[in-house]
């Protein structure tokens, strides 16, 4: 990305609501709300000047984290909430998805491609620049970071947590 573009992003981030702090929203833990969350995340990504390709990656990764929160991190079902926080420092957009239960760390068996589920974490790892899964007694936080100036090289990811 050109220096000029970075400067524009930095300027925009200084004036946007995300840079003024964080944007947080809480939504009932229902699968019908997943589309609403993804659309909202897309708007945030557009605000941070992400490319169409990066917006799709972000939506898939956040979609996987929120779907896991709804399916496995909500012991009381729709009575639980999913808490989503977005922040941007001009260089990276960070989305934190927090549930009120226990994260299901399911990974596909490497030798078996016909698993029904377990592809959510590999997708998050491949599509984001950094993924951290932080498990605590009051719930799990999945922290997803997308570099704004990243070309999103799939082989250039790392995972923590």
């Amino acid at each position: 990305m050109l220096k000029r573009s970075l400067k524009t992003i930095a300027h925009r981030c200084k004036t946007c609501t995300l840079c003024a702090g964080e944007q947080m929203f809480v939504i009932k833990s229902e699968s019908a709300n997943l589309s609403v969350i993804r659309n909202h995340i897309k708007l945030i990504g557009e605000h941070c000047d992400l490319s169409e390709k990066q917006l799709f990656d972000l939506q898939v990764a956040v979609g996987e984290a929120t779907a896991n929160a709804v399916e496995h991190g909500s012991p009381l079902g729709p009575e639980n909430n999913v808490n989503i926080t977005a922040s941007c420092d001009g260089g990276a957009l960070t989305i934190v998805v927090k549930d009120e239960g226990k994260f299901k760390r399911r990974m596909p068996n490497p030798g078996i491609e016909m698993n029904f589920r377990g592809r959510g974490i590999p997708l998050m790892l491949a599509l984001m620049d950094r993924v951290t899964i932080d498990e605590a007694k009051d719930g799990t936080r999945v922290i997803l970071v997308k570099q704004i100036n990243s070309s999103n090289n799939v082989s250039n990811n790392r995972s923590e947590g």
Partner: peptide, 16 residues
Amino acid sequence: EFMDSSGLGVLVGGLK
């Protein structure tokens, strides 16, 4: 326009 891992799981289930 969008597909997540649960959609992939349904396709794999159908294939089986």
